[in-house]
Each structure stands twice: as structure tokens, then as C-alpha cells.
Design a protein around this nucleic acid. Structure first.
Lengths: 209, 209
DNA sequence: TTTTGCTAACTAACCATTTAGTTAATTATA
DNA sequence: TATAATTAACTAAATGGTTAGTTAGCAAAA
């Protein structure tokens, strides 16, 4: 039995994990450092010991999430054999991640809503990496003559904006449907259906005639 | 000089207006009732006297904003002579409103980010009205054979999601450009350019072949 | 004089951050 | 190898500031 009583790595990881869960559910403001400490079974001061302050912890949580998405897109892109496929992989990977970790879109929207004001460098860099990835796909397609010239950031926001809103409003749309189902708000749509529809929309708009 | 010393309507309106401004700039949490009271030149207790509590005041501010957008879209739609034109008017009106009142997208995203959890009925109804309006345009186009069948909520989110993200990230994109301008993030794009691009994308995807 | 509009002063709770200290683990020394 | 010195990991308990909401009562209007 090599029961280690103290292990900085484990402790730090535990705090990060609990913080991710709590920030996810309740957002930055509503999550208290007391909450995080309690969930992690750790003294509150350790948060300051390891992460400087609440904001520092948050930044690390968030860029961790973006890095994961980035890695997943890169991975999915690996098994593509056309640029159109790569675009599809981008949409699919992002959508699947967003639906699987449904707290993520909420965090992202919240973060963007107090826009840049105090967006940590770390997080900004991680976010940007994902955008650059899409830009490359679009540029490649353009060079190959399969996509028309586009404004990358608009394509990017069209994809992630739509997905994020679909995920965050899911409970809302369900509630709405119960009250009034005269207009289809895709309350029961599968991730796959949504992915497909978004991809097709984007693809059609990029199509070379 | 008919300087009225006491007028409930005027006082209430003043509070609402200052609240709108402050919530816009700083969001719900970061705006304190003390701030609002001070800006309005009114005692804090009056907020509770007129609006029950901070959340009540917020709900009224937000649905006021949505109602304004709704009215503007309805108005713009009036001078259209084709369904495609109506779609264009929808995008244009929303984009112009969002850019003119650049705080609005931030408020909306923030509100949606703690999704429905405590979205006041009043606000939800005002939001939904705008969506229904777009649905009608899409259905009409479908009936006339100018649009293919689509999923209204996806089209809606594609429009407002993109616009909202473009507005909220404007300062961020500007900053990003200064650091690295190798990828175009549309930092200097005009509202008009963005409106046009979004409209064309949506239209192309709805096109009947 | 009764109701409505309004204010100053207050409270109770919360919460991020700090401080001052303890205990475990590691390294150096005898 | 035992022990002393040092560092790293951790804790309990404040601190200090903030903020939503309340209360009791005054002043103007009806």
C-alpha cells in the first residue's frame, strides 16, 4: 500500500476537475471558491496557492476545454480525404463536443458576453487556435477550387454560434414545445440531424457554381 | 417653470432607462442596485418600491428591448415586395439593431447562457415573438416555392447567433488583428458587409435548384 | 387627512482573498 | 543511518469589502 498523503498533481487536478463541473453548472459568478474547495475536499486557500485567484482557476479550466476541442478536431481531420470532408469533420466534432459537454456552450456564451473586457490571454489563445484551424480548411478549399472565397470568421460564427445556441436553448425549446407546438423549434432533433443541416447549409453557401 | 417634484411615471421611466444602460454595459450581476439608484438620482429603495426586486427590473428592461426589435422588423417587413426581401429585411433589421445597441447581444447571450433556468416568462414571450416572425417568412417562401423546406430555428440561430457573436467579439477581433493580421477576422467590416454576407449565405442555402 | 412618493440609515449575508500557522516530505549533514 | 534543516503542501480562522433587500418615517399631493 503506497497511499500517498500529499500529491500536488493529484490535488491540483482534483480542484481543476471540480471547478470545471461547478463553473459549468453555475457559471463563474455563482460558483464560489468555498463550493470548489468543498467539492474537491480541499482547503479553500489551496485554490490561491495553486491558481493565484478565482479568475486564474477559471482561465485554466476554460482553455483546457478549448484545447480539448482543438485536439479532437485535429484528430478527426486526420482521417479525412477531401477538404469538404474536413469541413464536415469540423462541424461534427464541435457539435458532438458541445452536445456531450452541454455546459460548455453556456460557459462560452457567458464569457463572450462580457466580451474581451477580461478575457484571459490564455483562453483567448486557445479559442483562436480553433478558429485558425477552420480558416486553414477554408483557405485550402479555396486554393483547390472547391470553395468560393468567404469571410472565415463569419463561417466560424455561423457554425459555432448556431450550435451553441441550439445546445443552450435545448431545455427552453422543449418547454416551448409543450406550450405551443405549432412552430417546429427542433426540440427533439438529434445531434446528427443538426450537424448535417448546418454542414449542408455552410457547404451550399460555399459551393462553386 | 412647472418643475414637478414628484411624478411616479417619470421616476419609474428614469430608473428603467438607467437600468438599461447599466445592465447593458456591465451585465446583470456586475450592475448593483446602488449603481442604478445613483445614476437615476433616486433612492435605492424606490427600485424595490416600483419593481419588487432587481430581477423584476431586469426582466422589464429585457422584454422592452425585444419588443422594440419585434416592432422594427414588423415595420421593415411592411415595405417589402417579395418573400426574399422579407428575409433580407429580417437580417438587416436585426443586424442594424444589434450594431446600434451593441450592448444588446451581450445581454442576450448572457441571458441564454444560464439558459431558461430563470428566464422570466415576460422575456421568453418577447423573444419567441421574433422567432415566430421569421418562421412565418420561411413558411411563406416555402409555400410560394422560392425557399426549400428548412428548420426554422436553425435558420434563426444562424442569423442571430452570427450577428450576436460578431457584435460582442468586435473589440476582441480588433485586438487580435493588431497582434496578428495573417488571418482576416473581419475586424473592420461594416454592418452592411456583414448583413449582406449573412443574408446571401442563408438565401443560397434556401435556394430551390 | 389619507394616500402616494420618496429618503436616510440600516442589516444581514455573502464571498474573495489573506494571514499566520501546522504538518508532511525531501534533502543535506554529521 | 539517524537527524537536522529546508521546502512544499496544506489548514483554520479572520478580514474587509460588497450588496440585495428592509425599515421607519418624512413630505407632497389628492
Amino acid at each position: 500500500m503506497s497511499k500517498v498523503k500529499r500529491d500536488a498533481k493529484v490535488t491540483k487536478a482534483k480542484i481543476l476537475q471540480e471547478a470545471r463541473t461547478l463553473f459549468s453548472i453555475k457559471g463563474f459568478d455563482a460558483t464560489t471558491t468555498d463550493d470548489i474547495a468543498k467539492s474537491s475536499g480541499v482547503n479553500k486557500a489551496l485554490i490561491y496557492y495553486y491558481f493565484k485567484n478565482k479568475a486564474g482557476l477559471y482561465a485554466q479550466v476554460m482553455s483546457g476545454l478549448f484545447d480539448t476541442i482543438y485536439d479532437e478536431v485535429v484528430c478527426a481531420r486526420g482521417s479525412c480525404n477531401s477538404t469538404t470532408d474536413e469541413l464536415h469533420a469540423f462541424v461534427k466534432t464541435y457539435a458532438e463536443y458541445a452536445y456531450k459537454h452541454s455546459y460548455f456552450p453556456a460557459l462560452l456564451l457567458r464569457e463572450l458576453s462580457d466580451s474581451g473586457a477580461h478575457l484571459p490571454e490564455l483562453m483567448f489563445a486557445s479559442m483562436r487556435k480553433v478558429f485558425i484551424l477552420l480558416s486553414e480548411i477554408l483557405q485550402k478549399g479555396e486554393r483547390e477550387g472547391v470553395f468560393i472565397k468567404s469571410i472565415p470568421i463569419l463561417v466560424h460564427f455561423m457554425i459555432i454560434g448556431t450550435i451553441n445556441l441550439m445546445v443552450t436553448t435545448a431545455p427552453l425549446r422543449k418547454k416551448a414545445m409543450e406550450i405551443d407546438d405549432s412552430v417546429d423549434s427542433c426540440a427533439e432533433c438529434s445531434t446528427d440531424k443538426i450537424t448535417t443541416d448546418i454542414f449542408q447549409t455552410i457547404q451550399k453557401s460555399l459551393e462553386v457554381k
